[in-house]
Amino acid sequence: MDQQNIIKVETLKLEFDDGTAFDFNDINFARGKVTGIIGANGSGKTTLVEAILGLKKPKESKIWINGIDQKQFFNSVEHRLGLGSQLQIFAFSELVKVREMVALHKALYKKQSQKIYDDLAIGEISGKRLDKLSGGQKQRVNLYMALAHMPQLITLDEPSAALDKAMAEKLINLLKYLVDEQNCSILLITHHPYELDICDEILTILGGTKGYHVNRAQFIETIIGKFHGQIFIPEGQDAKAIETKISHLKHVKSHLRKHDQIDIYGDDGLEADFLTLIKNFDLNSYSFAQTNSADILKISTQIAG
């Protein structure tokens, strides 16, 4: 068994009827860590995870899950006991009651965590049918089915989508607990900064292939830059001249322009460069801060590995 990696994707090629193709190579998901999978819509995040889970038929693949060949893994009921997946689509029969789903989970896994039941507040909706639940409540049930047996490997696809802020915070704490206390490994597809905050590693997907795959701190320091400056160009100001100047600044790693707003990312010396820029162009509207998860999400859709 690979002690370091819970999943090893040596090669994975997929082709669909509409001509879309995906090609992933050498991706290792670390055991006992949260790996955030990020990228623009349609880049292939869900396709990658669903292909790993055997839900998409690849043209070619060499994948190991927990040291076991992917096909063997999914052919064995015993192996699947250690897997918990929350998929984007929760298409269970709408006429089932939540307590019946809980009973089904019990029958499937023989093991349920009271903490997860309580944290996701399943008790307060247990008597309701799925078709009577809100989107957020359905998502809680979906998450319960994926997490309640505290599986070794968890895959989550935008887990806090539709959850209110309080529940989203509870979920984040729960995921931390599962990794820190229960040694679970999590693959987390996300578009939310607060989900990305708990990720140990980040995998970026760009145009159907692997971008960067490094730990979070490394991603910020070496790829994006520790600091983030933002300027708003006033009307009449020559934006092109400002952009040209930015590209020549020593400590800038990258910059992104959207209409009258420019985001600048860079390393330790960026602050001085940024202040010079502000002064030279007499800019009044700006901000400067440490790079955070929101920046990672913003820039990850723009950069290739």
Binding site: E50, L53, G54, L55, F74, V77, E78, R80, L81, L83, S85, L87, I89, F90, A91, F92, S93, L108, Y109, M145
Partner: peptide
């Protein structure tokens, strides 16, 4: 119809024959 909706994806992942 259920398969087309993706309802059986979860069953593939559940530990059951």
């Amino acid at each position: 119809e259920q398969r087309a909706k993706g309802a059986f994806k979860a069953y593939h992942l559940y530990p059951m024959e």
